[in-house]
Design a protein around this nucleic acid. Sequence first.
DNA 1: TACAAAATGATAGTAAAACTATTATATAAA
DNA 2: TTTATATAATAGTTTTACTATCATTTTGTA
Lengths: 226, 226
Amino acid sequence: MLLDIRIKMNDKLFLRNPEDSVLGKRIVSQGLVLINKLGFEDFTFKKLAAEIETTEASIYRYFENKHRLLVYLITWYWSFLEYKVLFSLNNIHDPEVKLKTIIGLLVIVPERAKSTEFISEFEAYELVKWESSKAYLTRNITKDNKDRLFKPYKDLCHRIAEIIKEYNPNYKYPYFLASTILEMSHAQKFFMENLPALTDSTVPNDNKLISFLEHLLFSSIQKPTK
Amino acid sequence: MLLDIRIKMNDKLFLRNPEDSVLGKRIVSQGLVLINKLGFEDFTFKKLAAEIETTEASIYRYFENKHRLLVYLITWYWSFLEYKVLFSLNNIHDPEVKLKTIIGLLVIVPERAKSTEFISEFEAYELVKWESSKAYLTRNITKDNKDRLFKPYKDLCHRIAEIIKEYNPNYKYPYFLASTILEMSHAQKFFMENLPALTDSTVPNDNKLISFLEHLLFSSIQKPTK
DNA sequence: TACAAAATGATAGTAAAACTATTATATAAA
DNA sequence: TTTATATAATAGTTTTACTATCATTTTGTA
């Protein structure tokens, strides 16, 4: 269904483009898997080097540090998701259907097997659920933001906000609402699985989360803002 | 206005109760300030020891590691906030007013000066804005949750959810909604200050965020859930 | 007031993390 | 074929995240 696409990554993210070599691709794809396995805090370049049978020094030639690798992977996910959104919204004109489609894409776990890219979409989804906020919750945020590292996320937010405005041009908080839906689609999934007392779901249930997010989104856009 | 209260902290959080000694209190209060200054990643017990003129080893007698100190501080904040909520809701019977009061308490920045406790409320608020999710986004979450480390946050969420149910007993997502409001009150503040493209506010503006959260909350609870 | 128990300080040490540097070897491009 | 470039192998540095030991204060109680 989805063609093999190339996602253009911000070159501030790496020292050497990992897409240009076999080793680079392995660093990225296996780095993703290993971060998911160990958690970002316990993940080190040394462990990754052992895993893919290369050296620490070789990995450092691609990425300045593990945080940059994290941001690389997270932004890859958001870029990929925006591509999927774009693709899925093709030929849809009703903003309500558009927004529901996007919520589905945000919440539904990608299939494990299916990966056209060298990066596993399923693993990237898991990474975003656990580690995404660590990409921006640092003291370098202002500099990183100037380097446009968060552009893919902001673009996706912008796209959602535009559809919200299309649905109701008088709605006053399209960006607040778009970023709330974006953040909550992953955070609430995390809560369902790890802190279920914060949710209405004892068993992780995508449908219930989708229903909530849709209800939240549409009740808010439909109600007049004075 | 607020009396000097004692917040009972979970004793799994520390090795020795920091409230019981001058040094312990300094570790907590200055640790908070130093984490805010450096960011959690760059904060170390060694730096804190230098700051308060003690030794690393002494700090380790109180806290197993810096993550436990972080959780201590974050849960202190949520406990304190629940106390404030309880106090502020006294004599209010209308659930609408209750919910608006809570949103105000969540969003409005505490005054810098005013601190009855040895922990600065203002600093704790800043900490929550920057570091709160790092308290639970770890591979120890299941164990930490079993140790009830997140109880204060869950309690606050529960309290809000109960008022939501009071407002509309038929509303189907009281916990999803309560945790969304809780998470977004701080995350959106962070976005306004650091990634404003994700928000509708160019200048950090508490009133606009409050209006959004109130609109979001009430439009959702008012609309029937089928 | 005196003595014991507990807390703190001073110091040292270890293992791992987070890098940097150097040189040799393999691979690819001209 | 040569030359540039990438990778491997190895080693080294500084900092972090601890743990251990013992001396010295401080505190609580008989």
